[in-house]
């Protein structure tokens, strides 16, 4: 009896036709995923730099405020944040919240907290002598940072940056839970339509795999090109 079931299962006939026929649904989802990912990067990176500089500031209040924001968004689960921004925030400030806006908002802030720590690590990793040399030729702290420290730090941060961006890309799957039509959401829809969850989710997993692989290959190439002056990188 059991053997029979197992045999039957192992002989399960994979049928990708139904899934591939609705590929346009999945591609639309992929496009929506990429949109949110891209926007979260565009807002998250500068915000992260701001938070990092704030945290390193000599002004105690600013530094503690930024520390708190960073730690809060690093220690709370992104799914909880998303629910909060989607369900709670609109009531609190009485505005209309779309899944798209909530998603971009959540992931911009969430990833900025992580980017902030990468920025901070990168800046701290630069030899103290670089600050001193800049100071000795009369540079202000601000121009030391922008002309001397950041250009070197950013180069070292690329691997950590890439890693975090990939995390972000994977985390965007959560937005399916607030009914934003990303790749994951489209997959759920399709699976309940064609009753072929095995094929649908396998195809989707493969799509994510290649999307992420492409992105990480791109960053490896970028890192390789920037590594010309022969400095180490920070992970």
């Amino acid at each position: 009896m059991v053997v029979e079931i197992v045999r039957e299962r192992l002989l399960y006939e994979w049928d990708f036709v139904a899934t591939l026929a609705d590929m346009d649904l999945l591609l639309l989802g992929l496009w929506n995923t990429i949109q949110v990912f891209f926007l979260a990067l565009v807002f998250g990176v500068p915000l992260g730099l701001g938070l990092a500089l704030g945290r390193m500031s000599r002004i105690l209040v600013l530094s503690q405020l930024c520390s708190f924001i960073i730690e809060f968004f690093r220690t709370t689960p992104p799914l909880v944040q998303l629910f909060w921004f989607f369900f709670a925030l609109p009531i609190l400030i009485s505005v209309q919240m779309t899944p798209f806006v909530a998603s971009v908002l959540t992931f911009s802030i969430q990833s900025s907290a992580f980017f902030a720590e990468i920025f901070r690590g990168g800046i701290n990793s630069i030899d103290k002598g670089q600050w001193e040399a800049a100071k000795a030729i009369g540079m202000t702290r601000k121009s030391s940072l922008t002309r001397i420290i950041l250009p070197q730090a950013v180069k070292r941060m690329i691997p950590a940056f890439a890693e975090r961006s990939i995390e972000l890309l994977k985390t965007t799957t959560l937005i399916s839970t607030v009914s934003y039509a990303d790749l994951m959401f489209q997959a759920n829809e399709l699976a309940s339509k064609n009753f072929r969850p095995l094929e649908v989710y396998t195809v989707v997993a493969i799509m994510y795999f290649f999307l992420i692989l492409t992105f990480s290959q791109l960053t490896i190439r970028l890192e390789y090109r920037l590594a010309k002056t022969g400095e180490g990188t920070l992970r």
């Binding site: 994951m184 095995l198 989710y201």
Partner: peptide, 14 residues
């Protein structure tokens, strides 16, 4: 290189 959520859903439904 695949999202955890996809993995969980895959294990649950597929």
């Amino acid at each position: 290189n695949t999202p955890v959520l996809v993995q969980i859903i895959w294990f649950f439904f597929a």
